[in-house]
Design a protein around this nucleic acid. Structure first.
Lengths: 142, 142
DNA sequence: TAAAATAGTTGACAAAATCAACTATTTTAT
DNA sequence: ATAAAATAGTTGATTTTGTCAACTATTTTA
């Protein structure tokens, strides 16, 4: 891998970090921490999810996650249910309220993306999204 | 902007957040906080930089930045020099040691990108980087 | 020249994250 | 069968990171 290629990639990373950072920043005005949002998102996506699953996919600290989950429970956003077959694991599920809350966050995030990326021509959207898909497809096969 | 386009962009953002997060994580094992690295980077790029410049480009808190800079000064990585024409502003400069430190960080970051993005075909690199440039060029003209 | 604005500092504090020790289960190896 | 190792999760102590508001010292504006 050439020096120049590395620099090109770093250049993009720096640029896109700012984009994501900006989104995160405005996002968080109306929400909890990024970690919390991600955790909620994971739970909403998978009905048979355990804390450990989240640990591996999000790479958080055990203790940190445990506390986040406890706070969710206190706010009645999730329930924990001990597995019948393995007494160590807890299945996490969104409550009605949790689903509502997540939906709200999700809509907010979408609105924000629409705000941040809005105002391009139809052509540019097409090219932009194609490029995004290309990047992901190349990196994902690693 | 269509719903589907928003979703496509969010999809990429989620994906690329992880890529960047991973880089940051391994990066920080051998360095200070991300904020500190960014600040050092800014200073190294511009010889007539003030704290306020950093505030506007990086969007940090005044107090937070002030402390970071103080710690850099203590570690002899930078010097502050009061402007002759405006007694409020302080010019920030890397010391010899600061330049060395930055170079070390910079090399480390490059090595990490090379590690994380390594192993693709020459074709894939080309396509990847083209896509990155395309994305940046579209977003930057906003 | 008084008031407003700007650059930066400081103290108090809050939020986010890490570390290590701990309990309670389950799995592995003898 | 059972002791040891591994796994899932919790808890307390602590550190790191970031925010807020009040402050000093200049400079600009009216």
């Amino acid at each position: 891998m050439k020096q120049e290629q590395i620099e090109d990639i770093r250049n993009f990373n720096r640029f896109y970090s700012k984009v994501i950072g900006l989104l995160d920043k405005t996002y968080l005005k109306s929400a909890d921490s990024i970690a919390e949002v991600r955790v909620l998102c994971e739970i909403s996506c998978d009905a048979t999810l355990t804390a450990n699953d989240i640990l591996t996919t999000l790479g958080l600290d055990k203790g940190y996650l445990s506390r986040i989950l406890k706070s969710f429970e206190k706010k009645k956003l999730i329930t924990k249910e001990r597995s019948a077959t393995d007494g160590r694991v807890m299945y996490l599920k969104l409550t009605q309220l949790g689903r509502l809350e997540f939906e709200k966050l999700d809509k907010g995030a979408a609105a924000q993306v629409s705000e941040a990326f809005g105002g391009l021509s139809e052509d540019d959207y097409h090219t932009l999204i194609e490029s995004m898909k290309t990047i992901k497809s190349i990196l994902i096969k690693k």
